[in-house]
Design a protein around this nucleic acid. Sequence first.
DNA 1: TAATTACTTTGCTAAAGGTTAAATTGGCGG
DNA 2: CCGCCAATTTAACCTTTAGCAAAGTAATTA
Lengths: 223, 223
Amino acid sequence: MSHISAITENPVFSRLSKETIDLLVRFSVKKELIKGTYLINQGDLWPYLFLVTRGQIVAEKDSVDGRTFIATTFKPGEIFWGITFFIENAVMPASLKALDHASIYLWSQKDLKPIIEADGVFSWEINKMVVSRIQFASELLESMTFHPIAVRLARLLVGIAEGGERTSIERNLTLDEMAARIGSTREMVCRLLYKFSDEGLIRITRTDFSVTDPENLLKRAQK
Amino acid sequence: MSHISAITENPVFSRLSKETIDLLVRFSVKKELIKGTYLINQGDLWPYLFLVTRGQIVAEKDSVDGRTFIATTFKPGEIFWGITFFIENAVMPASLKALDHASIYLWSQKDLKPIIEADGVFSWEINKMVVSRIQFASELLESMTFHPIAVRLARLLVGIAEGGERTSIERNLTLDEMAARIGSTREMVCRLLYKFSDEGLIRITRTDFSVTDPENLLKRAQK
DNA sequence: TAATTACTTTGCTAAAGGTTAAATTGGCGG
DNA sequence: CCGCCAATTTAACCTTTAGCAAAGTAATTA
């Protein structure tokens, strides 16, 4: 009951008719995930659409040699899907894991496809949502292909510190987690962190850090 | 007249009603591109959907320092779109260029959106198409993130030689072009090519090459 | 045919990033 | 308060990839 508003008020659904929204609510299944749980694994068939209402879900890709790369994270209000939702017998290219205690709404393809096909506006909104993810993937690709790891790390830091410049922030990502997000190793991350610190771009101790000057951080990371 | 079949017979459109197909044909605009022409440039607003009927269109991303990376190529029968088609004022993340003399059909968002919203089946097919591209992007990302360049090149070669194993294939990509496709440099490509050759995985001369054993090529490229 | 241009090949060098191993530190349960 | 554990930090070394230069070979043009 309480969180139905997460559905009715989501921007993706905002243009929908009352009838469609009612159907959406009716077919939704709520699910709680405790920290560290995998919603699904890379390689699974998973024909669902989901909406995050609490916590964070990360999409992580594993490589053969055991390294994992975090491609993106889904925050409350965001919607995502399993490929199988759209393409029968296509398999998930990444695992989905709850970063902390998370709540999501789930819809199965079986329930939703008829609704989408019946409502052109809904369908168009789904298209928009899907395409905006492509755009994101494209940026990620560019970042991984063209930018050296110093720049990727600098971006990550700026993203984390965003809002609270100058103020000291508790280090809530381990070196390994940072490394997974920029596609590198913990040693590398550590080295760069202290290099940035030596150049006066950030201030860092073993337990917390702050970004002194985001613009210069990005600029200097280029070389 | 002659090539209307390219529309009516495209798999993406195959489930559509006769009425919808008629509309599609009516609103299509045919365009010829001569070799090397840019259809649009990275950063443009471009609200169109297109279908390739002849030649090849490549999507290339430029980096600041002048390097370009070929993310994908569109062949006859394939459909793609400008981001702006779905998301107003979102900008193209790559340029589209005709690799050789190419023909395409174009549809503007203005014409097509009403048709898509009116026809749920059409809409669903569009969704499928879009999502399958995401899947492709995801594979590309994985390839660029996890695999060293030897593997990326090996894959490219296997892709090119596919079908005609053992038979000698004319080298129709320059080293620079191959390099652009795997995100590296011509020197690197040349070196690897001859390394593969030394190991007996491919046979190569200045003008043509053949892949002796695709499986082993991929396997050995891993190390 | 000579000249020019575009590719290809190869060697050498440098930079970026990864690997391994060992030392350090902070936090936490007992 | 102590000892242990996991995360962090440092350092030395190794591998991969890029960059530059020079030389060779096709292909095209004059």
